[in-house]
Amino acid sequence: MMKNRINQLFQDKKENILSVYFTAGYPQVNDTVQIIKTLEKNGVDLIEIGMPFSDPVADGPVIQNSSTVALKNGMSIKQLFEQLKSIRQTVNIPLILMGYLNPVIQFGLEAFCKKCQEVGIDGLILPDLPVSVYQEEYKELFEQYGLHNILLITPQTSDARIQEIDEASGGFIYMVSSSSTTGAKDKVSDFHEDYFNRVNQLKLNNPRLIGFGISNQETFENACKYASGAIIGSAFVKALEQDKTLEEKISAFVNRIVKPV
């Protein structure tokens, strides 16, 4: 069996990993494949593909809006799998699906996992699937289909619970910079240094990526000091709003975050 691409990435690259989130079906319903290819071409290490949901409670206004537009465009999980059918013929970086539980339940949990494996998905982020329910009802199935479950921790998560989450996680841990919905405007000075240091001292099995409030080169680099890398979501989705070609928007955005080598 092939090694999970997420593990491969973290084995090969220990720092400055850039993960980018976008909502499938936004701005146009058939942009998915081109966005993924262009992100890879521009040097992004990992991609989180958002499955839009009508009621995204963990998301701020930017991702809410992209979800609403994507759903109006007719996006669905079924269609997403259809779009991703041949993605592995060209794209090699790890791909993660991120979304809320209800559409996944309606698709059928096992059918969903099976499809993920077929198209070459490496992991899942389901913010409203708590670790206890995951362990009892989902873990076996995820593992059967080679899918890592990426769980979140926040500054309020206790050490004991972080250890528990680490045990249940695969791939990496999504370290939320501050307790908030996505797209919060965090200043660099607001970064919870104590929290990051506390987590680093726990000697966890899984590497960490920092997310929420990462929007530019400065915040990205600062986050990278405390983890293997960082995740950008809302800022990228916002950049897609501009009236330019996808190619232009994406390369300009990635180059703003990562200094050209």
């Binding site: 759903l71 669905s76 209800n102 559409p103 339940i105």
Partner: peptide
């Protein structure tokens, strides 16, 4: 409705076949 998860609880929900509320 059909069984689903909204507002953090599993219950009966009015939703589309795709699981949108």
């Amino acid at each position: 409705g059909k069984v689903g998860v909204l507002h953090s609880a599993k219950s009966m929900l009015m939703q589309t076949d795709d699981g949108q509320i």
